[in-house]
């Protein structure tokens, strides 16, 4: 390690890369080989959800699970925290 790096206190960018990849790769694997309408479905679902709550696209996850010949479409929406009353 060089002297200069002793003064660097940036977050470890390799671990950020790894974490981001882990999530996106899992998501893309989940929809791989799935029906072509999946991206469109995701977009439309987002629009519907948006009518009621203001969530970030990142908060909506769609996964296609395959188990023993069954396909299960799994939708998860992380709702924003309620503002304190």
């Amino acid at each position: 390690m060089g002297l200069l790096s002793l003064f660097r206190s940036k977050p470890n960018s390799a671990s950020i890369a790894k974490e981001r990849l882990r999530i996106i790769v899992a998501q893309e694997r989940g929809s791989r080989g799935g029906p072509d309408y999946l991206p469109l479905l995701r977009r439309e679902l987002l629009q519907v959800i948006h009518k009621y709550v203001n969530v970030d696209p990142e908060a909506v996850q769609i996964n296609l699970e395959r188990e023993a010949g069954n396909e299960v479409l799994e939708l998860s929406v992380a709702l924003p925290q309620k503002p304190p009353d």
Binding site: M1, S5, N12, S13, A14, S15, A17, K18, L21
Partner: peptide
């Protein structure tokens, strides 16, 4: 080693 690049293991 400096944490700037993903490792083989990663």
């Amino acid at each position: 080693a400096n944490g700037e690049m993903m490792s083989v293991e990663d």
